[in-house]
Amino acid sequence: MVETLFALLVVLGMLAVGSYAVAVIDGAAGAVLGRTAHSNVFLLPIYQCASFWLVPANTTEAPDAWAWRLAPVLYLTFAAMGLALVPWSPSFIPVDLTTGIVLWGALEPLATVAIFLHGWSANSHFPLLGAYRYVSLGLSYILVSMFVLIGVSLPAESLQISAVVESQRELWNVIRQPLGLPLFLIVGLGISFWGPLNFADSSDLAEGTSSESSGRAKLLWQFGRAAMLVAFSAIGASAFLGGWLGPVLPGPAWVILKTLFILVLLLVLGRLLPRLSPDRFLTLAWVLLLPLAFVDLVWAGVEALP
């Protein structure tokens, strides 16, 4: 009982601290790359939260009110479920499913449903366009992600995330399967629609799926996106960078360091790169990324042969 409660606290803490870290790192990256930091990078996210909190909620004509309110909650919940799968050390894993990798693979399509609902339920054209766009791209993200994740579970001979970490004791997957992490990072940017792959909530759609929401609903949505990015980084750190494995420091410290590394990489990439047109990215995803994911899988299979 105490252990369950502690695990719950860790996941909730990770949600809060992780999202705050995303905001701070993103703000710092922006300041370095040319945005004037009007105030302290560490305080700015808190001010922004407060302003979102105080702004009155918007509504549209005849929205699907239930779905519109629930979609951000669902998205955040999926991010939290992803974070619960992250193993911190051999002895402390909040949720140690034998099919952890598959559950993570299931969270991605479920997140797609939540993103679609968020755009669709507002009953307005820009959110609907953002939702359509996301779904048309989401399928390619999911496929790439699944092949890459099957790749990491091959050497582990298990679908358990802790077993995947343990299988990297001699060689991290980032070296053993060099295509895996880059593909996984692209999927990560896609699923949390961040930076160059922000097609669902992009500026050319007036913030797409969230263009009609404001106030606390929008705060929750942004919170969910940041949390999803953290969950992605943490799973990526476990699947490719050896999770808790590392010298000197205790396991959880390594998990945090590696997660932060991926997070910084994703956020800086997000700030640096311009948005492609969705059409062109879709072609790229099916013509280049998916075959690369196949290559990764074959590579992993050949490498895993005894």
């Binding site: 990256a29 922006g30 790359l33 040319g34 945005r35 930076g195 160059p196 922000n198 992009s202 500026s203 050319d204 700030r271 640096l272 790169l273 311009p274 948005r275």
Partner: peptide, 8 residues
């Protein structure tokens, strides 16, 4: 800005 390069 329109093409997502807010910082630039």
């Amino acid at each position: 800005w329109v093409n997502g390069l807010e910082s630039a």
